[in-house]
């Protein structure tokens, strides 16, 4: 019973990891850049979400607008920075990415933006109801997270596997030059990739904000390195790998916290998992080659 309840809690945690890591994985696939500033997009998503929610009081509208703004923010990051570094050695965009992340976090803390305090995001379960069974239960908030994640993942899956756009991302991830020589407009294709990936990060920000009923400027710090661990664990650029890694990490975190108690801070567990993993499977769970 406790086991199952722990598993269902882990599943919720995994959902937020998945949304965050999916976008990062998509970007990594196409650009081969570790896009640290992705975590800023997550924070911006939460911020926009909480603002819209406080104006209009409608969670779904807040989520939609937050995703839209996050998507646009992601595209702007690409067009203003990575776009100019496409042919530079890969450390260059990486450093640019770290720089942007630090800058955005500082900027967001300014009083005219988010300030240095926490905002409540009292959207509750957005009208959904809790699920209770004999074995496990989900609160309304957890149902909300599950539902949104599931819908978004199905959407991403369809785009990746059933559309030309998805095919163009796969082609670009294997050989960008050749992709352009079959007629793919790389600028548009990569921008669309950033848009979708960033919208997912924005959704993750909103969901976590609602779940913890709290949104603040530095909320992206933790996800910034956790998402990394997940894509390294998952095998750099493999979406199924990222999903699997999210689940594993969430389960391990939940169970270790539940059983070992607080011997280790929860967030150090993620790194332990990473180190162990790299010792035994240096290419990640589902990495290629």
């Amino acid at each position: 019973m406790l086991l199952l309840q722990n598993l269902s809690n882990a599943l919720i945690l995994a959902c937020t990891y998945i949304l965050m890591a999916a976008g990062l994985t998509m970007v990594y696939g196409v650009l081969k850049v570790l896009h640290i500033a992705h975590a800023s997009v997550y924070t911006v998503g939460a911020f926009v979400g909480v603002l819209v929610f406080s104006w209009l009081g409608n969670f779904w509208l807040a989520l939609a607008i937050a995703m839209l703004v996050s998507g646009i923010f992601g595209v702007l990051i690409y067009r203003s920075t990575y776009f100019y570094l496409l042919n530079a050695p890969r450390t260059v965009p990486l450093i640019a990415s770290v720089g942007m992340f630090v800058m955005f976090t500082d900027l967001l803390q300014k009083p005219f933006l988010m300030g240095a305090y926490q905002r409540a995001f009292p959207a509750g379960g957005a009208g959904l109801s809790a699920i209770k069974t004999a074995l496990f239960s989900f609160t309304a908030k957890q149902v909300l997270i599950l539902l949104v994640t599931l819908i978004l993942l199905v959407l991403v899956y369809i785009i990746l596997t059933r559309t030309k756009l998805g095919l163009s991302w796969q082609a670009a991830s294997m050989d960008r030059e050749m992709a352009s020589a079959v007629g793919i407009n790389l600028n548009r294709s990569i921008a669309a990739n950033f848009f979708l990936g960033s919208a997912l990060a924005g959704a993750a920000g909103v969901l976590v904000g609602v779940y913890n009923n709290s949104v603040f400027a530095t909320m992206g710090d933790l996800p910034s390195y956790k998402a990394f661990i997940i894509i390294v664990l998952g095998g750099m650029g493999s979406l199924p790998g990222a999903i699997l890694a999210s689940l594993i990490l969430a389960i391990v975190e939940n169970f270790l916290v539940a059983s070992v108690g607080y011997v280790l801070p929860r967030d150090s567990i993620a790194f332990l998992v990473l180190i162990l993993m790299l010792m035994f499977r240096p290419n990640g769970l589902l990495g290629r080659e």
Binding site: L167, Q170, A171, M174, D175, E177, M178, A179, S180, A181, V182, G183, I184, N185, L186, R288
Partner: peptide
């Protein structure tokens, strides 16, 4: 750019194929 050239009717069989290997 290359993709605009393709639109205008160019196509290439590059040296050593350059296939999309994992597709």
């Amino acid at each position: 750019p290359a993709w605009e050239r393709v639109k205008r009717g160019l196509a290439i069989v590059p040296e050593s194929g350059r296939l999309f290997r994992d597709l």
